[in-house]
Design a protein around this nucleic acid. Structure first.
Lengths: 331, 331
DNA sequence: GAGACCCATACCTCCAGGGTATGGAGAGGC
DNA sequence: GCCTCTCCATACCCTGGAGGTATGGGTCTC
């Protein structure tokens, strides 16, 4: 059974006449008669009651035509949906980001912006360490990602600068420098540094270490925190200080204060995406990020909003559509 | 776009290979390649990412295949449903009956029985006077009906005897014969008779009149009741008596008593159906009625059940399926 | 009874879907 | 490094079935 036959049946039913239906279908009446007969043979029952003034539907005819209409409509809809998917307006986009990027209002704002601009694209959020994100790219399990790549780490992928933010010091509130308005790296030469493992995020690790070396010392590293958020908690215990991207200051933990660094190095967040079988939605996302990046942060209402609400209880009043979901994965 | 192309796309997606899919579809691989390419041209985007070891779906491909599967399944289901409709197991059956027949447990039992046996046949119940039912047959707006035809009235239709029941007297409870166990027609010679208009039901009217004449008198007819149920209410007012089918005794109204007639005439209910473009479900219904009619009433659990519950508040605990409905029309 | 209308049958045409042969490109084995 | 295998694409040919024309049969209308 082919859709053509469904179309013919519907036409005959609507015109209540083989002759008129054939005219509408731009085929000859005998051809139509034969095709309808073929359908009736396949069904095993007459679909039309041939009368003297046209035809009427039999009961199986009524039932078939009712279904045929929906089948035809859905077939057409399937093609349209595929086209939309081709344009990137519909489908699935897997967005990865590192824990440190997830606190950046530019990143969260871009994702939210994308979801409202393209509501039919299902967004899957994947928070993982840079190394795992890159592994996902290699195996095709990720479309775009915000991360902080080390030099050369993403040469095989398309990448574009998304946003930069200065690093700040996170220190116990009882630290001797805690009273200062800003802190120089050199003054932390004797402190223990809490960082997370270098393999999980080479770029940030290396830039912190090299900034210290530029300030004239090699940091004493207590490399114990698996997650970025646990770094802050460890700082709160007083065992050491840390250097984190400024947006981490949103995580206001009792016993931790954040202070700007004098001559602070910038930590860049890069948007990376696959280049070979690249879904169009990833291109749309990259374009959206690019246009956001070209605007100053103050002009981004979402980002500003994000910063204000970040420390509150429900930072994101997500009114999600039924049927659409934003899945989030963490390791 | 034809279903064949959907089938091809699904096969390629499932096999992840043009070669294997072609083998499964029993066509040559180049033919399949060409057809898929045609689809991709129509969509405007590649559906498959050609790799070295087979192919993978692109995003528009994923979207199309997901829809294609449901379209294919529904197309197949449409054919199956039409076949079922042809066998009478699915569709619409319009069952008519007169008011007097609607009180007969055989009739209601048969309808209920049909609904449980063929749950996918939507039953439309139409309660109208015999004359209107016959008019509906003439214009094809009815499939089967329970009625009491006058001689020759249904010769152009298929008809079969369904059930017979004796006539009984309905009289005011203060009537002088009310105390008797059974009543002879002759003893009612001086009473006024409440009947409904002859054109609405010639058969019953005529059989009552001729029974009276056989008993030696012409009834004085107060012909004022448009509905059968109002006959009973009028009897309750004390202005006269009536002769009704025994199953009407279910309508227990204060002030009315029913008494068997001595040598009571039988009132037959006939099942009538169209013969020309007859839906198969009407045949199934007629067969069901025929098999019920061949069994004695005592062996019909539904009928017995019906009689017991008829005078209660909710005579029919209709647990109807969602989506299916039993429509009822009255004039 | 002639004409109109409508669907069915008979027979012919032609193109699209399918087949065979072959090419090209990358992966893997020796 | 070359051969081979795998897999998809291209080129070209063939055939079945969809579609066209001519015509017939039945019924209603005028």
């Amino acid at each position: 059974m082919e859709l053509r036959l469904f179309r013919y049946c519907v036409a005959v039913a609507e015109e209540a006449s083989f002759t008129r239906a054939a005219a509408r279908l731009r085929i000859a009446q005998p051809a139509l008669s034969r095709q309808i007969k073929a359908v009736e043979n396949e069904i095993g029952f007459a679909l039309f009651q041939r009368g003297l003034r046209g035809v009427t539907l039999t009961e199986p005819g009524r039932v078939l035509i009712a279904s045929a209409r929906t089948v035809l409509a859905e077939a057409e809809a399937a093609v349209q949906k595929a086209r939309r998917a081709g344009r990137g307006e519909l489908g699935l986009l897997r967005i990865g980001f590192t824990a440190s990027a997830s606190f950046n209002p530019f990143v969260t704002g871009a994702i939210r912006d994308f979801r409202t601009t393209y509501p039919d694209v299902e967004v899957e959020l994947i928070e993982e360490a840079t190394s795992f994100l890159l592994e996902r790219f290699a195996t095709g399990r990720l479309d775009v990602a915000f991360l902080r790549p080390a030099p050369g780490e993403v040469d095989h992928l398309l990448s574009q600068r998304a946003v930069a933010e200065p690093l700040v010091v996170a220190m116990p509130s009882g630290h001797k420098q805690a009273g200062r308005k800003s802190v120089s790296l050199a003054s932390l030469a004797d402190d223990a540094f809490i960082l997370y493992p270098r393999p999980n995020g080479r770029a940030l690790f290396d830039s912190i270490v090299s900034a210290c070396q530029a300030a004239g010392f090699s940091p004493k590293i207590l490399q114990v925190a698996p997650q970025l958020t646990s770094v802050v908690n460890l700082v709160a215990t007083g065992i050491g200080v840390s250097i984190v991207p400024r947006s981490m200051a949103q995580v206001s933990t009792d016993g931790v204060v954040y202070r700007p660094l004098i001559h602070a190095p910038q930590a860049e967040i890069t948007l990376v995406r696959r280049n070979q079988p690249e879904p169009r939605s990833a291109v749309l996302f990259a374009e959206l990020v690019r246009s956001r990046a070209s605007r100053p942060a103050e002009m981004l209402p979402d980002a500003a909003d994000d910063r204000r609400t970040a420390s509150r209880k429900a930072p994101r009043p997500s009114r999600r559509k039924p049927g659409k979901s934003t899945r989030t994965r963490r390791r």
